[in-house]
């Protein structure tokens, strides 16, 4: 749990940290599409180098990043194996009884695993270099045009920021309740599945009760502080789009062009 990197924010100083969250969101969105342009060793190579460059620019310790990938390593390995055994293209490499491994399978497996890995690395970079509240601000701003379509953009953004605000609080709470129940002899980690599911009840009910109580008190506090919906509200956080933000997106276009040139 402690080594998880998803959704975690590392407050460092780096060119990537300083980008406008909208630029980073658009960049990621574009990157997810651009990744699919790669289809040979050269284009995947370009993509990998580009990702490493991004990581370098973010000043995030690559070892920390890789150790955080442990939970997904199995999914990647599984994808790789699936392709190796199921793709029957190209030359036959191995033939051990019923196991036939083709060159195409190995290539496909390697490419798809790499694509998956790069996507995870780049999206982790977004959360690692952007505080959750900036991501929310960025999303709210990018979604603003959809307000005309009656999308409750302000409410969604507020909900998201409140959830972000309360995640650590509820995590602490979960830990406390869990410990209190373990002290009363609860066992969350052993026994058959059925028992384990039952063991979660003493954890979930108090957690829900407290979350509801918090929600109620928070609503009262918000009202007391003058909250009455998005109408007539001003914003404390303003986003500033700068030259470097445009540059980041241009860089993405250059990458797309390079990949287009390199793909077969």
């Amino acid at each position: 749990m402690e080594k998880m990197i998803f959704g975690r924010y590392l407050p460092l100083q780096s060119p990537v940290h300083e980008l406008d969250p909208r630029a980073k969101l658009l960049f990621i969105f574009g990157f997810v599409i651009v990744v699919f342009l790669a289809n040979n060793i050269l284009s995947y190579g370009i993509l990998a180098v580009f990702t490493l460059l991004c990581i370098y620019l973010s000043r995030i310790n690559i070892r920390f990043l890789l150790s955080g990938l442990k939970p997904v390593i199995w999914i990647i390995a599984f994808t790789f194996l699936l392709h190796i055994f199921l793709t029957k293209e190209g030359d036959l490499l191995f033939n051990i009884g019923f196991l036939k491994i083709y060159e195409g399978g190995v290539r496909q497996g390697a490419f798809i695993s790499l694509r998956f890995l790069l996507l995870i690395l780049v999206t982790s970079l977004l959360t690692l270099t952007t505080s959750p509240i900036s991501i929310t601000d960025g999303l709210e701003s990018l979604l603003n045009p959809f307000k005309k379509l009656k999308l409750p953009v302000h409410e969604l953004a507020l909900m998201m920021s409140i959830s972000l605000r309360f995640i650590p609080t509820l995590m602490d709470e979960t830990d406390k309740i869990m410990k209190a129940q373990i002290a009363r002899g609860a066992d969350f980690s052993s026994g058959p599945i059925k028992e384990r599911v039952k063991a979660v009840v003493p954890l979930l009910i108090p957690l829900f009760v407290s979350a509801f109580k918090r929600a109620e008190e928070l609503a009262v506090a918000m009202e007391a502080r003058g909250y009455r919906g998005g109408e007539g509200r001003t914003k404390y956080r303003l986003l500033h789009w700068q030259g470097k933000d445009s540059a980041a997106l241009v860089l993405l276009l250059v990458l797309a062009a390079l990949l287009w040139w390199a793909r077969s």
Binding site: S161, K213, L218, A221, M222, T234
Partner: peptide, 24 residues
């Protein structure tokens, strides 16, 4: 805990101001 709305200290102080439409 249950009256802290903002994700950071300054956001929380600003919350009431935002609600009342105070200029940036």
């Amino acid at each position: 805990d249950n009256q802290f709305v903002g994700t950071t200290v300054q956001d929380d102080v600003a919350f009431g101001l935002e609600n009342n439409g105070i200029p940036h």
